[in-house]
Design a protein around this nucleic acid. Structure first.
Lengths: 171, 171
DNA sequence: CCTATCATGTAATCCGTTACATGATTAT
DNA sequence: ATAATCATGTAACGGATTACATGATAGG
């Protein structure tokens, strides 16, 4: 029971286990896909290795089904809950980088008149996805995901506007 | 002379070598810091290992100063230029994830009234930085960086607006 | 029944980060 | 001179992606 670093991945796993209770890696995979994965995707392999790491550190417990598929099931411990609480209490003052591939290509001289349309379409699609999600959101359930969704919507709108500006500016 | 994957890091190094000509890792470090690093930062160690990787694959040449500091100097090859051209010609249709730590904390229940102010301040600072950069930009030089800067400005404005919205929505 | 897809997991590789180290300049 | 900072690099570690693999379920 050593203490590995807690990464964003760790907090995603812990947070989901806190919310959903005992879950298998595959359960986590589905949870991620329909929630936090919208702005922070994880590979499915991470959802097998990360809980194992967390178990070694005592933040979650691991048990194995005796019958059937013999899946591994994870559950958050008090130590895990405490780690989440501590993390929540220390609001980050960091801002993330854009790290956008399309922008990188533009920076290094890709032709805007080819790049921009592709980006506009992709961002419109993503925007539509988010708006559909908001339609379905009843507003019940935790507040965080609902608030976060708005960030996604605004970001996509901003991107669409930006690439349209690029077109106008260079066209 | 094998063929490693070309990652975004690779294209940043290739692109800078293409633009600036023969450079040492430290030259690259400074170049990154004042240009592309504004939206895609690299650790300085990568600017030593990545050119070495690229050299092994024939995309750049490596030579060593005979005197003084005996620095390594890298220069892009024709193969490297071609790789850049090919990359530029294939505009990406992918959109990046937000992957924002603050948003993750909000998603998992951090108190908005503590998180939002910290984020607003951080984003305002970044925004001011970008706007200062634009002041200094004469508009000479390549178009890409100038266009990319606008993306940063818009993104920061969007974030400030978002967190203010969060405050209003939850306050 | 057969095949496609879902579900479940492990292993290998590799990139990126962090840590370590030391030689040159510049400032005081 | 000496301290501080800049410049230059290597090594170790670890997390993340990719590849590999196979068992179960459902649809045709």
């Amino acid at each position: 029971m050593q203490e590995p670093r807690l990464t964003p991945t760790s907090y995603i796993v812990l947070g989901l286990l806190e919310f959903a209770g005992r879950s298998s890696p595959y359960d986590l995979k589905r949870l991620v896909a329909e929630s936090v994965g919208n702005f922070w995707m994880l590979q499915h392999a991470q959802l097998y290795t990360e809980p194992a790491r967390l178990a070694a550190a005592g933040y979650v417990t691991e048990e194995r089904e005796e019958e059937g598929r013999r899946r591994k099931l994870y559950e958050i411990t008090d130590a895990g809950r405490e780690a989440m609480e501590e993390w929540r209490r220390a609001p980050t003052g960091s801002v993330s980088e854009l790290r956008d591939l399309g922008l990188l290509q533009l920076f290094f001289g890709s032709a805007p008149e080819r790049l921009a349309p592709a980006q506009i379409e992709a961002h419109r699609e993503k925007l539509a996805e988010y708006e559909a999600l908001r339609e379905r959101d009843t507003g019940a359930g935790p507040r965080g995901p609902w608030l976060a969704l708005e960030a996604g919507i605004r970001a996509e709108r901003s991107w669409v506007g930006y690439w349209e500006w690029v077109l106008a500016e260079t066209g």
